[in-house]
């Protein structure tokens, strides 16, 4: 199994498509960083909107932590496409190349095959996320410096002290990893039903887009189905950036406003991952390889 996993990793990192994702991420992040470096103040005043009229908010608002938050907010909608690019190809690509029948006629079980492949896709996903972290967090910290983070939410604004942020990013990235692994698991699951990767990639993205629309539109009928959609839970990483306050409305360092929400969403995402991978194992075991 470990041998198979290593070979899957070898295949992933031998193909140019893999590096395309890393290049795309780099380009996206650098573009956002340049934009914020040039016009950060304008962006901040846009984000603060009405609040800026009533309050004078001073300090290095457009700091590395804030920039990272902006990048994550925008990017975590688009990274799934890059993940689908590889994960949705894991089985369908083999079918397309005529190697699936070669692999499955080797002395390995199909369960091992599916798990090794998913593990390799997960490593790719995590590395992509680590790359995002390096560029979005560490490079932003180096370019923009660090300070408190000031975030506007729907009903209130949150200021988190500089020393109370980094661990939140660690948490957020761990959570984002779960969210992205869910995407990988979905793409992987769809991958076995096709003989080329376009279908599963498009299907994965379509599902994410449709679900995200349901998750983001505040229409009462959609609100009822929202909790059942994994896309609703994928954004719970933002909960790391909300603090509890004491009776005097002072934020309490080291707290999270809704840890229950994070745990709940994480469990739902884990259930999705286990579900998708489990069904993949089951259905591939039953499947006749005709490709």
């Amino acid at each position: 199994m470990y041998n198979l996993f290593k070979l899957e990793l070898y295949k992933i990192f031998k193909r140019p498509r893999t590096y395309l994702s890393f290049a795309a991420i780099t380009a996206l992040i650098v573009i956002i960083q340049i934009g914020l470096l040039k016009d950060g103040k304008e962006y901040i005043s846009f984000v603060l909107a009405d609040l800026g009229n009533s309050f004078e908010i001073n300090g290095n608002l457009c700091n590395g932590y804030f920039v990272c938050f902006c990048i994550l907010q925008l990017l975590l909608i688009h990274v799934p496409l890059l993940i689908a690019l590889i994960a949705a190809d894991m089985i369908s690509g083999e079918a397309n190349m005529g190697t699936l029948r070669l692999l499955l006629s080797k002395p390995i079980t199909r369960t091992e095959f599916v798990l090794a492949k998913f593990a390799a896709a997960s490593v790719y996903t995590l590395l992509l996320l680590i790359w995002v972290a390096i560029l979005a967090l560490f490079v932003s910290m180096a370019i923009f410096g660090t300070d408190d983070i000031f975030l506007v939410k729907n009903n209130y604004a949150v200021q988190i002290a500089k020393d109370d942020i980094f661990w939140r990013y660690i948490g957020a990235f761990f959570f984002a990893a779960l969210a992205m692994l869910t995407v990988a698991a979905l793409a992987f699951f769809l991958s076995q039903f096709a003989e080329n990767s376009i279908g599963p990639i498009v299907a994965t993205m379509s599902i994410i887009i449709v679900f995200t629309i349901f998750s983001t539109m505040s229409i009462p009928i959609f609100n009822k189905i929202k909790p059942y959609m994994f896309t609703t839970h994928m954004v719970a990483w933002k909960e790391f950036f909300d603090v509890k306050v004491n009776a005097d409305n002072e934020s309490i360092v080291g707290t999270i406003q809704r840890p229950d929400k994070i745990i709940n969403s994480a469990l739902i995402l884990i259930a999705h991952i286990v579900g998708f991978v489990g069904i993949s194992v089951y259905s591939l075991k039953k499947k006749d390889i005709l490709s």
Partner: peptide, 27 residues
């Protein structure tokens, strides 16, 4: 004195609004 806080979702990109109305009232 403070004005009411209002932030469009397009700015906050915060689409998951499950805050209870009494909590909102406190704000």
């Amino acid at each position: 004195n403070v004005k009411d806080y209002k932030m469009p979702k397009g700015v906050t990109l915060d689409f998951d609004d499950d805050m209870k109305s009494e909590e909102k009232l406190k704000l």
